[in-house]
Design a binder for these strands. Sequence first.
DNA 1: TAAGATAAGAGGGACAT
DNA 2: ATGTCAGTCTTATCTTA
Length: 295
Amino acid sequence: MVTDVSTGERFCGGCGFVINERIDDSGPEKRSFSKEEYEERSRTGGSSSLAKHDMGLATVIGHYDNDATGKPLSASMRITIKRLRTWDSRSQAKESHERNLRQAFSDLGRIKDKLALSDSVVEKTAYIYRKAVEKNLARGRSISGMIAASIYLACRETGTPRTLNDVACQINIKRKDVSRCYRLLLKELDLTMPVLDPIKCISRISSQAKLNEKVKRYALTILEDANKMEITAGKDPMGLAAAALYLACVINKEDVTQKVIAMAAGVTEVTIRNRHKGLRELLDIKMPSKTNVAV
DNA sequence: TAAGATAAGAGGGACAT
DNA sequence: ATGTCAGTCTTATCTTA
């Protein structure tokens, strides 16, 4: 059992199931939500403003504290009705949410194997997806898109190396749809994803491409310099790391092609070339005093 | 064959209207 | 809310060493 201090939720540490929510979760936000829901519903049967006053015939409980004849309710009755109203809207919202979750989690189960996800990633995905559904972010969007974004998010959080492309391909949807949902989740759930650490990128690429330690360290110093010169802003960290590694290879006379590194980094050779060019210009400024290496 | 160059196209952020 | 703009990355094709 874990308590999320920021939201006050208590949830199972094992499966991410939310056991109970904070009581003032149903503050002003909730009221406006149920009102919308309300008008939406009442529109199915004629004029909306009339439907709201249809003297108890609607399937939802009206939000005016009058009785059938229009007279105000007594204080105690008002409280009773208020509670009924809460449960009324809650049960309706819950039901559709549950349907959505069932569908989503059955999808998740199928995808888990395809992407070789660990259990903890799956749990995290489920937790994220639940939050998304609670916030009504899933409405009007495809379940697969949201579940894909949740998976990607969970991977990023747990440091599981899966690219946006990996996820999108396995779920059979377009990459851009996943990334759209992903960004939405980041924004709406107030999550901040640390920018991919170039250092981690370097070790990942070099292990994938089987590069030696020396090159790795050299690439790191290149990246540090690049950071100081502020030419890294807005660039794909993977591409940057790949270019630094490539440059380090060239300088150290390692026989590694751009293609190998590009494959390992998941970027194209062109990107490596572009970054590579920039890095070389940087080195030309600062190299001459140091080692005089032919490039 | 690997590396470099170039061009067209896509997706997204910033900013103004 | 919608359109425009600059910058990035990708794909594809051609040239060069």
